[in-house]
């Protein structure tokens, strides 16, 4: 089983990102579960969402939060300074961050693997959200499938986007693909 925690801020689309991951995993024959750590959602407040992906239904019955994720997806780079973001992350786990920075420039411990992409810029380019408040969820998932293709291939994510994001599905798919190509991996 692979457990993923997505960190974002209200309005960035973290909850929908986790749903797309679950839907996409299901499309490639896996069993998946996604859920938000639901607060009273407010724009700008930290939001956490969880995804569990398993090879079969039998592996997946747990219904508690994820405390020791295999990987984390971070939609807002300012969340990197909050200790909760890295809490329980397993050694060797991917930290997939939306930032204009190169992964080498981020202060992330060497025991983790790091990938970055400027999902905000890509989202703005494709008219997703506003310039001040871009919706980056579909773009960051391009980076996700780039480094975790074995968990969910890009094609499955692209197929899930129209299901979970009925507004501007084409632009969202393009943003996702572009992010996939632009992803930078820490050496």
């Amino acid at each position: 089983m692979v457990e993923i925690r997505t960190h974002g801020r209200g309005g960035q689309g973290a909850v929908v990102a986790s749903k797309i991951l679950a839907d996409a995993a299901f499309r490639v024959g896996k069993y998946a579960q996604s859920f938000p750590q639901f607060g009273v959602e407010r724009r700008g407040a930290p939001v956490v969402a969880f995804t569990r992906i398993a090879e079969s239904e039998e592996e997946l019955p747990v219904r508690s939060n994820i405390y020791e994720p295999d990987h984390i997806v971070v939609l807002d780079p300012t969340l990197l300074s909050i200790p909760d973001t890295f809490a329980g992350l397993k050694e060797g786990g991917w930290v997939i961050v939306n930032t204009p920075e190169l992964p080498e420039n981020l202060d992330i411990p060497a025991k983790f693997r790091v990938a970055t992409v400027d999902a905000s810029e890509i989202a703005v380019k494709y008219g997703l959200g506003s310039k001040a408040q871009p919706i980056v969820n579909t773009a960051i998932l391009g980076a996700f499938s780039r480094v975790l293709e074995n968990v969910i291939p890009l094609s499955a994510i692209l197929n899930s986007i129209p299901e979970e994001v009925p507004v501007k599905p084409d632009a969202n798919q393009k943003a996702c693909e572009e992010a996939y190509n632009m992803t930078r991996i820490r050496k």
């Binding site: 749903k19 679950a22 998946a32 579960q33 996604s34 859920f35 938000p36 639901f38 219904r63």
Partner: peptide, 10 residues
Amino acid sequence: AFVLSHTSEP
């Protein structure tokens, strides 16, 4: 609430 209501699964 949430544990099922807002959890997506097949």
